[in-house]
């Protein structure tokens, strides 16, 4: 009953704090929408320079939605490439296509290679490569690939911050001490926080996931309930970690200082970036990052349509993180009251 009373109080406080509510629910949607525009935005129209190509090839290149400029010699084209007027130069050497890419923008490179492929396919139908997709689909955007990680990240980030600040305030305003002068158990305090925040985080996770899939049209072939489950587990981890770390902060500003320490490293290791170039022992750091498991499961569900059996390890580990952090929380409260 005390746990429920505490949860109810947290919910009531939340409902009065409109700005925090907006932060939890609307900020992730806004950022996701922006990222959607960035990653999905304009179709890329590369500027391709050609040097002494046969007319039919130029024609086909033109039809692939590219700005094609013809040059009479390679040196002239090179100059344009260096001046960034061109993204690539296509020429023929001994009948073989010779492509020079500008190379700064990976997504541009990909777009050009794709066009070249189309042109060459039509040219020599006999060696036409057969392209199939194990997962995803042709034209799947970076947003579809990053999206599942981003959904998990936003849930994690905002809940971490808000739970941390709330618990900190409870301590600095003296209400925690007052709370602990009642017969409430330390475990009931932590449980009340989990329940009160849990309800909001479940709502938040539902809204973010629904918005990403239905409104932004993020690629999703898996089970919606599973996505919610993973999101909820991830936010519980954020909640317990946020409240735990807030015992080591003495002001809101110090909570913000946890962002570079706790949040940013998780982003690096969550699968948003390819870690192959990193030293193997450093790569192993991802095993201690909750977001790594959340992101892995989210991607599995949304892109590869994985079932609960495929992601059970992620589920266990996230649950484990939450339980460990919650127990540490209960222990940390001993600092405030010995029993």
């Amino acid at each position: 009953m005390r746990t429920r009373a505490l949860a109810l109080r947290i919910i009531r406080q939340f409902l009065r704090d409109k700005r925090t509510l907006a932060l939890i629910f609307l900020a992730p949607l806004l950022i996701l929408t922006l990222l959607n525009f960035i990653f999905n935005g304009q179709p890329i129209t590369p500027n391709i320079g050609t040097v002494q190509l046969p007319a039919p090839i130029i024609e086909r290149l033109n039809s692939t939605d590219a700005n094609v400029t013809t040059y009479t010699n390679q040196a002239e084209a090179k100059q344009a490439l260096e001046a960034r007027d061109l993204d690539a130069i296509l020429s023929l050497t001994d009948g073989k296509p010779d492509l020079i890419l500008e190379g700064s923008d990976p997504s541009m490179n990909q777009a050009i290679l794709l066009r070249l492929q189309k042109v060459m396919q039509a040219n020599t139908p006999t060696i036409q490569p057969n392209i199939t997709y194990l997962h995803g689909k042709e034209g799947m955007s970076s947003f579809d690939y990053f999206g599942p990680v981003l959904i998990g990240f936003f849930s994690f980030f905002f809940v971490f911050m808000i739970a941390g600040v709330s618990f900190l305030r409870e301590r600095t305003t003296g209400t925690l001490e007052r709370l602990l002068a009642t017969p409430i158990r330390r475990s009931e305090v932590v449980g009340g926080y989990l329940l009160g925040f849990g309800i909001f985080t479940l709502l938040q996770a539902t809204l973010i996931t629904w918005f990403a899939i239905e409104v932004l049209g993020m690629y999703m072939v898996g089970n919606f309930g599973l996505v919610l489950l993973i999101n909820l587990l991830l936010t519980l981890t954020a909640l317990t970690l946020g409240t735990l770390l807030s015992s080591f902060a003495s002001s809101e500003f110090q909570i913000i200082q946890f962002i570079p320490l706790v949040i940013v490293p998780q982003v690096f290791f969550s699968g948003l970036f390819n870690l192959d170039a990193m030293a193997p022992w450093l790569q192993k750091l991802s095993y201690i990052m909750p977001l790594y498991y959340g992101a892995d499961a989210m991607r599995g569900i949304m892109i590869r349509g994985e079932s609960i059996g495929d992601i059970q390890l992620d589920i266990y580990i996230l649950l484990g993180f939450s339980i460990v952090f919650a127990l540490l929380n209960i222990a940390a409260l001993k600092k405030q009251r010995a029993i």
């Binding site: 009953m1 009373a5 505490l6 709370l179 009642t182 017969p183």
Partner: peptide, 9 residues
């Protein structure tokens, strides 16, 4: 008051 009353059972 409701909150604290609940904590006291």
């Amino acid at each position: 008051l409701q909150f604290f009353a609940s904590l006291y059972g």
